Amino acid sequence: MKITMSWKKTRAVFFLLLLLSAHFTQSQTPRKPDVITLRDATQLEVVIQEVDDNFVKYRKLTDPEGPLFSVRKTEIVSIKYGNGDVETFEAVLEVPGYYAPNIPKAPIAKSPSTAVTPKARFQEELQTATPDRLRAVYKYYKGKSKGGMVMGIAGTSAGILMAAIGTGIVVSATDANGNFKSYQDEKRAIRGAWMMIGGFAGAVTFGTVGFVKAGKNGSKATRVRRELIRRNEPITFRISPAYNPVNGYARLALSVQF
């Protein structure tokens, strides 16, 4: 009885393994390619993804996860699908549109030469401005240029002065051999060193910002002045009234600067 039960169990396990092996083999069988035959006798072994009214979309067999290609139905003679089905297509007179990757076209970038620079825009505004407007703009940029120059000179001078004071503190805190005289002198020298660093940094920062500001605004003021000269317009004019109570003489003086 035991031998009979063992044989039945062995046979059942054998058939179960056979069924699992067959299922595994079937699941591992790769998909057969679809064959597209074109009207010029070219055959494409592909994996078809979609068939619509006008196009057949597919991916290459060697790159099933790659880009999507398409071919017009008018260029196809027949399709033999991987499952064995065959579909034929009638010939239609149409301009050929050969298969190409279905990739959206990138937008055409505008030429950078067509962009208007701030300098050109400023010049256009000057050419369309009235003389009074030009004089007001000239005065504005001239004042900004002077302010930048003052800022640059003052910032540089203050920074250099602070750095010089810090240098003096460091020098006075050490003896002839370069050693600190006391602990307080060491702390004082550290403060002097920070003053030196801050002074040089301030001189460079404020000096650079101020002089750059002066240069940019001075350049704009010069361009406004040239536009006024081109129009033969005075840059500034001043009316000075005067009255002499002794002889009752009155006058009006006009001062013009080109």
Score class of each variant (00 low, 15 high):
A154N: 02
I190V: 14
T74W: 05
L17G: 10
T4H: 11
D185K: 01
A193M: 08
E90F: 01
G218V: 00
G66D: 02
Y99H: 11
S157R: 02
A214R: 00
F14A: 09
V209R: 01
V13Q: 09
Y99R: 06
D53C: 11
R11S: 15
T25Y: 13
L18H: 07
T62Q: 08
V209L: 08
A115G: 06
N179C: 09
S182E: 05
S255M: 09
A136S: 15
I160R: 01
K187V: 10
A201Q: 06
S145N: 00
E87V: 09
F122N: 02
L68Y: 03
A91C: 02
P131S: 13
T117V: 04
A221G: 08
Y249M: 08
P107Q: 03
R135D: 11
G66V: 00
R11P: 10
F15Q: 12
K144D: 05
S240L: 14
R31G: 15
R238E: 15
G82C: 00
A100D: 02
F14V: 06
L16V: 11
V137Q: 13
F206T: 03
L161N: 03
R121M: 08
T167Y: 10
I239E: 13
F89K: 01
S182H: 00
V171D: 05
K139P: 09
I103A: 08
T174H: 13
V224P: 00
G66L: 01
P112D: 09
V116R: 08
V47K: 14
M1L: 15
T174V: 13
I103C: 01
M162W: 04
H23I: 14
P33L: 05
E50P: 02
G218Y: 02
R191D: 11
V77Q: 10
A201G: 03
N83E: 07
G66W: 01
M151K: 04
T62D: 12
L18T: 14
R230A: 15
W194N: 14
G198C: 12
A22W: 04
V13R: 06
K119V: 07
I229E: 14
L18S: 11
E75A: 04
V46W: 10
S111Y: 00
S255T: 15
V137K: 12
P107A: 08
A250P: 02
F55H: 15
R191M: 11
G210V: 06
V51L: 15
Y81G: 05
D85A: 10
F24W: 08
Y58G: 00
I79F: 05
T25E: 15
N247K: 13
G202K: 06
T236Q: 13
V71I: 00
T130W: 04
L161I: 04
S157I: 03
V77T: 08
M5W: 13
E75W: 01
M149V: 00
M195H: 11
Y99N: 13
T130L: 12
G97F: 04
I197T: 14
S27A: 15
N217Y: 03
G159C: 03
